[in-house]
Nucleic acid binder design. Structure first.
Length: 906
RNA sequence: GGACCCUUAGCUCAGUUGGUUAGAGCGUUUCCUUGACAUGGAAAAGGUCACUGGUUCGAGUCCAGUAGGGUCCACCA
């Protein structure tokens, strides 16, 4: 067996085991009859993406779940993949083209797409390789890409199907238009941001009453040339006489009507609103009601066009705004300009203000909305934390049709063909259903020469919403058979961030319900049973991590600094359920330190004595020597069982950081700080040595098993170094969690009373150590104690004497009468006298004892007050009452002893 | 404007169905290089649990309100 080095060096270990796991196909998930499945679909990162701290958290948790499932004996399958990320990817490739002074239009659609594929093959999917460094145990043979041929077929089939069912239609409507990416966006891709600007008060002169004006307030004077009316509330007395009259539009001067519409807020400004139907959603609706044709003064890229009139035409929109204000000022129409802050919608991707724009787009009326609500409301899908269910339900209550078309090239091209020569501007809803005018199919029209294909592609989310089943080969029967669709669907758990609850989670639920296993019960159609929402990782100041702020550490740097296990352990310990996380590198360092502690505890075991047969828990149990157990042996086994139960419970509740905390506390405090220390005395005694080593072997084995999901590399390494498995059996894939109740089945009864005694003894040791420190006695210094204790107490001390001496740094602990002038303390096991060359100063000792007496008197008063309270005595449960009584008795004993010591000082 | 969340030690956070003297990690201070580990050990200091009221024998925990912070949703020009 190899020698364990002095400190843990993660890098070689990580490399070695990841390669070994891959080589032995440990990550593969295959249907096994009679074995429960556990499946997770990775939230596919953008193919352009690189690993961020958010990914680290998210994927570590998925790996934890998957590895834990393997240990529990489930057939675990974690499917990886990437998302084609329409806008992001197209932008990246266009940027490269721009370096060669080219645009995508220079290449043409086909050539451009070739370039994108080239880019993807060379540079895409880097993030998946980075996940391997983290230790992600994905079944890489199943890696999917949303533009793969099979996946694409599924996407198009869904489009055709929804079209045929009447859920998809084409409509000219106001959309969120991104002037940078030149495409429509869904509402979810628009971020509202408070933006500083100006509020302009502009007056419009009445045509038939020169010198009289109507004033309006606007933040966008450049759209004035697009005004088609001025509106006021019909009941607004200021305007009743003006409805039907006309005003002069102050830019690109023409006469426009004053109309009455209830959508106008009387309270804002003068109560009058300029109506620009082409550039505002509300205005568009008002325009429709009054049959006013929109006047579009902006080009798709955000430049003002010739309709904006001389002086403005050709200007970029923000330059146009300034210029419009100047022109208004010159003509005297500008009454006021004041600083103003309002909410402006920004394109999520391009981070520029979006323009409401009237365009033809494809829309989806969501299917299965009611069922999607029921699935979560009725608990078929459980959200962790639960409160996200409210957010989800609220969104579904107010759901709007989804704009699924994008004016991009990179994506799934919409499978619609228009008959040649057809005027698409005039296409009606019934024309759409007329096969002579519009063809919708996967295969395309049989006579392609007579048709023109729709140039738009689908929103990326309109492909990723199929992820849980399209990745398993749906809808191709043969593929589904091959991937084990029926075995792995519905997936077990989805781990994702709450910010894509609408983008993705809700839509996947609706898609699953609509397309999978039609006609079967809801719980067979849902895409997943549990959804775990991670927190969002923020920097130390609480800001979101972002590239532009540069506040996001590179996870690969962290891995090289602290090891993958250290990073994983640290990030999980940092992330309690349901809250955003403030990143602290110290916690990652703590993860590394924990690994080192684990490493050294195993090293200590190896150095403590010869290794015996460790190959199964059963053989280790057989090596235990219960007859020779002392209280510490009982206590550590008791703690092991408790910790294991806690871990099991917390796993079921998805409380990962609490699991880590329990394991940390058990291993570091109970095992290393106490049991290993007391072992040192026991190991020197030939008669207790073998049994003590067996207990260590048992505890370490269980610890490695419980820790493995969090720190897979180091646990696998130590598993082999300590001989827990055979050479070709891996902890990750060949070992099952062992039922610690087996310990009880081996005729071994854990004496919980002895275990409780140890807890008390620990307190005494702590007290004695503090006492020494207070007395200026160095913690390592060999001290002499005289203890005055009753027979029962002394018996306990005597039984543990060797250990106690080691733990308190004493050369001797003897029973005897108190020495009057030496410093002393009162413990649960007698009064301890510290004997030194230099006696304590009685005056100082007196003060110390008096202070302690004061404190105990306070506690006694408090406890007595409760116990003499009639209401407490009659209403509190017996256990609480008994506890209080015992507490009082203990406090009184201690008080008496302190008084005795004080008196002895004279 | 609506909904949800948060406020506990210098910092970041735990705190299960209300029950002894409120915990952890980091940081700070003191002591210790004793053969697993200085990536370590021992100990100390540090909290009127945001505030006010209520329910209760008993409230960090339950209820109401107030203040401060955050997130999401919403068409106020």
């Amino acid at each position: 067996m190899a020698q364990i080095n002095k400190s843990y060096e993660p890098h070689a270990v990580e490399k070695k085991w990841y390669a070994a796991w891959l080589e032995h196909d440990c990550f593969a998930g295959r249907p096994v009859a009679g074995r429960p499945p556990y499946s997770i679909m990775i939230p596919p990162p953008n193919v352009t993406g690189v690993l961020t701290m958010g990914h680290v958290l998210n994927n570590t948790l998925q790996d934890v779940l998957i590895r834990r499932a393997r240990l529990e004996g489930d057939e675990a399958m974690w499917l990886p993949g990437t998302d084609h990320a329409g806008i992001a990817t197209q932008t990246v490739v266009e940027r490269e083209l721009r370096k060669q002074k080219k645009t995508r239009h220079d290449l043409g659609r086909e050539k451009f797409l070739e370039k994108v594929w080239e880019w993807r093959d060379e540079k895409g999917g880097m993030i998946l390789r980075q996940l391997q460094a983290l230790g992600a145990s994905c079944d890489w043979s199943r890696t999917q890409f949303t533009m793969d041929p099979g996946y694409s077929q599924a996407v198009l089939k869904v489009f055709v199907d929804l079209f045929q069912k009447g859920h998809i239609y084409r409509g000219k409507r106001m959309v969120n238009w991104c002037p940078a990416s030149l495409t429509a966006l869904s509402d979810e891709e628009v971020i509202m941001k408070p933006t500083k600007g100006a509020l302009y008060t502009v007056r419009y002169e009445l045509v038939d009453r020169p010198g009289e004006f109507v004033t309006v307030k606007t933040t966008r004077p450049e759209t004035i040339p697009g005004d088609v009316a001025i509106a006021a509330h019909p009941d607004d007395p200021r305007y009743t006489g003006l409805f039907g009259r006309k005003v002069w539009r102050p830019l690109n001067r023409v006469a426009i009507p004053i109309i009455a519409d209830p959508a106008v807020d009387r309270e804002f400004g003068s109560g009058a609103l300029k109506i620009t139907p082409a550039h505002d959603k509300v205005d568009f609706e008002i325009g429709q009601r009054h049959k006013l044709a929109p006047l579009d003064v902006l080009d798709p890229d955000g430049k003002l066009n010739e309709l904006a009139g001389p002086g403005l035409a050709g200007l970029e929109r923000f330059a146009g705004r300034k210029k419009a204000a100047e022109l208004l000022k010159e003509s005297g129409a500008l009454v006021k300009e004041e600083p103003y802050e309002n909410n402006v919608g920004y394109s999520e991707r391009a981070d520029v203000p979006i323009e409401p724009r009237l365009t033809w787009q494809w829309w989806l009326r969501y299917p299965r909305v009611e069922e999607a609500k029921a699935a979560v409301r009725d608990g078929h899908i459980k959200f962790y934390p639960e409160r996200w269910a409210k957010v989800y339900l609220h969104w579904l209550e107010n759901i709007q049709d989804w704009c699924i078309s994008r004016q991009l090239w990179w994506g799934h091209r919409i499978p619609v063909w228009y008959a040649k020569g057809l005027d698409r501007e005039k296409l009606t809803e019934s024309d759409l259903r007329d096969a002579t005018k519009v063809h919708v199919s996967l295969a395309g029209p049989p006579d392609p020469d007579n048709w023109v294909q729709e140039s738009d592609v689908l929103d990326t989310w309109a492909s990723s919403w199929l992820w849980p089943f399209a990745t398993l080969g749906w809808p191709e029967k043969a593929q589904m058979e091959r991937t084990g669709f029926n075995y792995f669907y519905p997936t077990t758990t989805l781990v994702t961030a709450p910010d894509i609850i609408f983008f993705w989670v809700a839509r996947m639920i609706m898609a699953g319900l609509e397309f999978v296993r039609p006609g079967e019960p809801l719980e067979r159609r849902i895409p997943f049973r549990n959804v775990y929402f991670t927190g969002i990782i923020r920097d130390a100041q609480g800001r979101k991590m972002s590239k532009s702020l540069g506040n996001s550490p590179d996870p690969l740097d962290l891995i090289s600094k602290y090891g993958a296990d250290g990073l994983r352990f640290g990030i999980v310990s940092l992330a309690p359920q349901g809250q955003d996380i403030r990143f602290q590198e110290e916690r990652i360092e703590g993860g590394k330190n924990f690994c080192n502690k684990l490493w050294n505890a195993c090293r200590f075991r190896q150095m403590s004595g010869p290794m015996s047969d460790n190959s199964t828990q059963t053989v280790i149990l057989a090596r235990l020597e219960p007859a020779k157990f002392d209280a510490d042996d009982h206590a550590i086994l008791d703690r092991l069982l408790t910790a294991t139960r806690e871990v099991n419970r917390l796993f079921n509740e998805f409380e990962f950081s609490a699991v880590v905390q329990v394991l940390y506390g058990f291993f570091w405090n109970d095992f290393c700080d106490w049991y290993v220390e007391v072992s040192k005395a026991k190991l020197q005694d030939e008669s207790t040595r073998a049994g003590c080593l067996a207990i260590q072997d048992l505890v370490l084995r269980q610890t490695l098993l419980l820790l493995h999901p969090f720190t897979p590399f180091i646990t696998e390494e130590l598993w082999h170094l300590l001989g827990y498995g055979t050479e070709n059996a891996f902890l990750i894939s060949d070992v099952r969690l062992e039922n610690t109740s087996q310990i009880a089945m081996h005729g071994l009864r854990i004496d919980t009373k002895a275990a409780a005694e140890i807890a008390q003894l620990k307190a005494v040791v702590s007290q004695v150590r503090a006492f020494k420190a207070e007395q200026g006695e160095a913690s390592s210094k060999v001290s002499e104690f005289i203890v005055e204790a009753n027979d029962a107490h002394w018996a306990v001390l005597d039984a543990n004497l060797a250990k106690l001496k080691r733990m308190t740094g004493a050369s001797s602990i003897t029973r005897g009468a108190m020495s009057p002038n030496a410093p002393a303390i009162v413990t649960a096991f007698g009064s301890w006298n510290l004997i030194r060359q230099l006696k304590g100063d009685p005056a100082v000792e007196k003060v110390r004892l008096q202070k302690e007496l004061e404190a105990i008197a306070k506690h006694i008063a408090g406890t007595e007050a409760r116990l003499t309270n009639e209401a407490f005595v009659s209403k509190a449960p017996p256990a609480v009452l008994e506890g209080a009584k015992k507490q009082l008795a203990d406090q009184k004993t201690k008080q008496a002893e302190l008084q005795r010591l004080l008196a002895a000082l004279g």
